[in-house]
């Protein structure tokens, strides 16, 4: 499963560095992604591009790095960390110049060496708190 891990790692990390070719190479045309932060499932490579672009527009130097991976059968589980600087409007919040760090988990299902389906959960609430869209708790 080493190749499957590498494929998923490339698809998760490389688009953030401007290499969209990884999507064409390793994502199935009929890809479907499930992310609780999105109202509808992400459909196809264009759906992934559109989803990532909203973050790339709002966060300068946005990067996602893979921290750990576990593979079993046709699935790969990936723990990742996203970082960026809030330089554009996001979730109704004007740019703050603040750096943000969020973590997430993605389970990818591969068919014939391409990612066909993914389930992602990530720290959306933490992101909103860090950019100030939601007030952080104050300690007494």
């Amino acid at each position: 499963m080493a190749d499957a891990k590498k494929i998923v790692k490339r698809v998760i990390e490389e688009p953030w560095m401007g290499n969209w070719d990884a999507l064409d190479e390793f994502v199935a045309e009929d890809y479907v992604g499930y992310d609780p932060s999105q109202p509808e499932p992400i459909q196809g490579r264009d759906g992934i591009r559109a989803n990532l672009q909203q973050y790339l527009d709002a966060f300068a130097n946005a990067r996602v790095t893979v921290d750990d991976q576990i593979a079993e059968g046709d699935k790969v589980a990936t723990r990742w960390t996203g970082r960026g600087t809030h330089t554009g409007e996001f979730a109704g919040t004007s740019a703050t110049g603040k750096d943000v760090t969020v973590s997430g988990l993605t389970i990818s299902r591969l068919v014939d060496g391409k990612i066909a389906e993914e389930w992602t959960t990530w720290d959306t609430l933490g992101m909103l708190v860090q950019v100030g869209a939601i007030p952080a708790a104050t300690t007494a």
């Binding site: 943000v100 973590s103 708190v129 952080a136």
Partner: peptide
């Protein structure tokens, strides 16, 4: 607004770095 949550990382109020 109520506040109920603190993220594991928060931006430094002086320099904006994620800490």
């Amino acid at each position: 607004m109520s506040s109920f949550f603190t993220s594991q990382h928060m931006p430094c109020t002086e320099c904006g770095a994620s800490v």
